[in-house]
Nucleic acid binder design. Structure first.
Lengths: 202, 202
DNA sequence: CTCGCTAAATTAACGTCGTTAACTCCGTGA
DNA sequence: TCACGGAGTTAACGACGTTAATTTAGCGAG
């Protein structure tokens, strides 16, 4: 009686194929330039088959996005985290920036594309978990007297925002497209350092 | 013999109508959701007329974008700039953030949309001029001993990046869509303050 | 006055996109 | 053996950006 199970497994395989093909195309071309037909072509199915596995294009990309958040969380946790909380925030920032620059199109959709109105992240989702990593480190930095005594959530958000800003610019603009002057080669590091310095007790 | 001049003036009027209608729609709906046909409908012309005035949709939005950069520059310069350089950076940041939050769809296209590969800003363009305002203030802050003695361009970029980060997040996500915790109500101010504090001499 | 030219505007159409409807095919269970 | 259900396909719809062909209007030259 494992028939329906085999059916489900086969269906899951096709779903995986779609997701993998979509991710490859998506990482190379970006959301707009990836068509449902192109994804279908890549796995040698007809375009309408995708609609047996996903509601629509947004649903497909949303599923992709969830996996990307999981991968980001993996990147943030895989390297042995330093004991020192400030050092750990530094490492988290570097890993975060590395992920963003390695997968700019994914980053664009994860953090630079408006979400559906109804959608809101649950506490156990990888996205929230990633932020918790940062928040916990900030909390420890405060408790250890390394950071100023300000609201932990707000400080974590400021750090995230500042870091997001620099990678968002680098993901969006080519070097020669920066206004006035090209980006400093160590702009990411400088932003991380300045943000940490701002919160550190002298 | 002012005939050709009148002709040009009339043509310019239509161009203005297109730009104004496009801006209104664009500010409300965002780039993707504004169609050439909708713009044409709004000014009661046929869609193809737009192509007598603009190369294509990207050219139209690019022209719009140039005007928006000019308006941003106006916003940044209209209020009397404080004498104190650090205070001036603060005021610039507040004005910049205010612009972004008042015109989120414009901000999205100005600073969050990849540019054509060939395009690169000229030094006298409003975009570059705006950045120069910030850079000059940073330079004065350094010379006045208010800021650390680090490369001025890099510091200005860090400030811009950090500020961009916070407004980009606020422009992209609704309050309930932030991971884990909703955004601190004064997140913009906190980000500005922390960034300035990071560069200030103790 | 009229003819022909120029240029702006329009209508019609093309190719592509996301998506839906109708149909085919096939393994399964009665 | 046969009806069922679901995965997959083909065909098609409506909307989009854009282009080609056509119309229209105003001006100068004969």
């Amino acid at each position: 009686m494992g028939i329906t199970q085999r059916r489900e497994r086969e269906k899951e395989e096709v779903r995986r194929k779609i997701l993998d093909a979509a991710r490859a195309l998506f990482a190379r071309e970006g959301y707009d330039h990836v068509t449902m037909r192109a994804v279908a072509d890549a796995i040698e199915y007809s375009a309408t088959t995708i609609y047996n596995h996903f509601e629509d294009k947004e649903d497909l990309v949303e599923a992709l996005c969830q996996e990307d958040f999981a991968q980001l969380l993996a990147v943030l946790t895989e390297t042995a985290p330093p004991q020192d909380p400030v050092e750990r925030i530094r490492a988290l920032g570097q890993a975060y920036a590395g992920f963003a620059r390695r997968y700019p199109n994914h980053y664009r959709f994860m953090f630079m594309t408006p979400r559906d109105e109804g959608h809101q992240p649950k506490p156990d989702e990888p996205g929230s978990r990633s932020f918790e990593l940062l928040r916990d480190s900030v909390k420890q930095a405060v408790e250890g007297g390394r950071f100023r005594n300000e609201p932990v959530d707000a400080m974590a958000q400021v750090i995230w925002a500042s870091l997001h800003g620099v990678v968002a610019l680098l993901v969006t603009y080519r070097e020669e497209q920066f206004p006035c002057v090209p980006p400093a080669p160590d702009l990411v590091e400088r932003t991380i350092e300045n943000t940490l310095r701002g919160f550190s007790v002298s």
